[in-house]
């Protein structure tokens, strides 16, 4: 391939990932590689902006579902009301006893819960570091490996 990617080849590379001659060209041609990178960034930016805009909108209002019928009260809630009340009294009475017996276990549970939350925060941070969405990952194969690692936050 002597010249740069044609518009069709460029679009196919972006959508499906480059193969064969196109792949070799993109790896050797900084101009086409940069162009793919720039286009991918523009689409990713647009995506983030729309998602952010909708997230802000959804976060600022209450979902309107008034057009749907109200739910019928759960049958078990009415039929077994007295059984539930008695069970609640028994459970409340047992709480002090159970608390004393299970204190060491609770300490272990708390530690594991903290570890879980650390792991969760780690996973969230890792996810947030990704700047390119999944559909654009074919493109990552087209840019030099060091850049790929930066773009994907090293998560590959």
């Amino acid at each position: 391939m002597s010249d740069h990617l044609t518009p069709d080849q460029f679009a196919k590379c972006f959508v499906n990932g480059a193969e064969g001659l196109e792949l070799r060209h993109v790896k050797e041609c900084p101009r086409c590689s940069d162009e793919l990178d720039r286009f991918g960034s523009a689409v990713a930016l647009f995506r983030r902006a729309i998602r952010g805009r909708v997230d802000v909108h959804v976060g600022s209002d209450v979902p309107e579902v008034s057009s749907f019928p109200e739910y019928a009260p759960a049958i078990w809630a009415t039929r077994f009301r007295w059984v539930l009340a008695a069970a609640a009294v028994v459970v409340l009475g047992l709480i002090p006893v159970l608390t004393i017996r299970t204190q060491p276990e609770n300490a272990i549970d708390r530690t594991s819960a903290e570890t879980d939350s650390d792991a969760l925060m780690g996973a969230i941070n890792l996810h947030l570091l990704r700047t390119l969405p999944a559909p654009m990952e074919p493109m990552l194969a087209l840019v030099p490996s060091a850049e790929s690692e930066i773009e994907s936050g090293g998560d590959r």
């Binding site: 979902p63 579902v65 739910y71």
Partner: peptide, 17 residues
């Protein structure tokens, strides 16, 4: 019917987007 509100909550953002 009982689960539809949950379904709306689950998919509303994606459809709206």
């Amino acid at each position: 019917t009982e689960n539809f509100e949950r379904l709306v909550e689950q998919y509303r953002t994606r459809v709206l987007r």
